[in-house]
Amino acid sequence: MSRSGARVEKSAQRDARPGVITRLQNHAALHFHVMTTSLGQLGRGKAGNLMTAIVLGIALCLPAMLHVLVERMAGLSDQWRQSGQMSVFLQMGVKDAAAEKLASELRTWPELAVITYIPAQQALLDFKQQSGMGELLAMLDDNPLPGVLVVQPQPDLTPAQLQPLASRMQSQSIVELVQLDMEWAQRLHAMLLLVERGVLVLGSLLVLAVLFVVGNTIRLAIESRRDEIEVVKLIGGSDAFVRRPFLYYGMWFGLFGGLLAWLMVNILLLLLKQPVAELAGLYGSDFQLGLVDLRTTLLLLLCGPLLGWLGAWLAAYHHLRAIEPS
């Protein structure tokens, strides 16, 4: 008798408490329900919420913009740096024949791809044409320019391998000076790495700002819904249940902030497109600024909601515990 009674009770309990899968499904549906209703609430808040989203957008836009610019410039300087072109200046008064002889010897080096000899006379003509200082040069008795071998190393050489190559050419008897043409690109690259660090620091500070802005917005939302929170706790809402709408609220803020930031960076890039193309043209480059790349887009659209969620969690954890029915 008592045995069957226990069995009845057990099956009754099973009825009352659904299985794990059903509970997971319920849970997911509930999350979706809360997610959509919190979006609706966000929409009804209007001006104030829009303002908060814009503040978040600006805060996220700044580091994203810098990140994109630095990355583009680093890519460009890397390209230049890789070119590795060198100018081998010959001693004054070296005859063309000696220069040609050196050139043909250098052509046997496996590290070198193309060697072009520019005789002193040719260099003078080029300089007259390009500099517009022809008359000044005409006043000189002698050609002040030396002959030059323009050396293009194999493209697969690393910057570290270029330096010993330059030294070897430097040690040739008729060579005055070997200069790595793109040394300045190397320096630019090093500087950009430094700037990248700066962007990281600035980004971290602005991430903190985002957390505080979202946290404060959520704190205000919690205050304004105090009565509702008390009622939900009275009818058995767990801390997680009470917290959930506010977390989604924060997530939506973060997502819209991220979207706005993405939009703002793209607008800025479009505004800079023309002047940058002109500047690059002056350097003989067809460099294009382009729009925000996929990786940065994903980063923004992922970090935004994540930060919103985290900021909301920090605020909700603190303030929701303090609200108890009385």
Partner: peptide, 13 residues
Amino acid sequence: ALPLLVSGDNHPR
């Protein structure tokens, strides 16, 4: 409906 959703035992549908 609120108490039914709070318990997590029910699908909102």
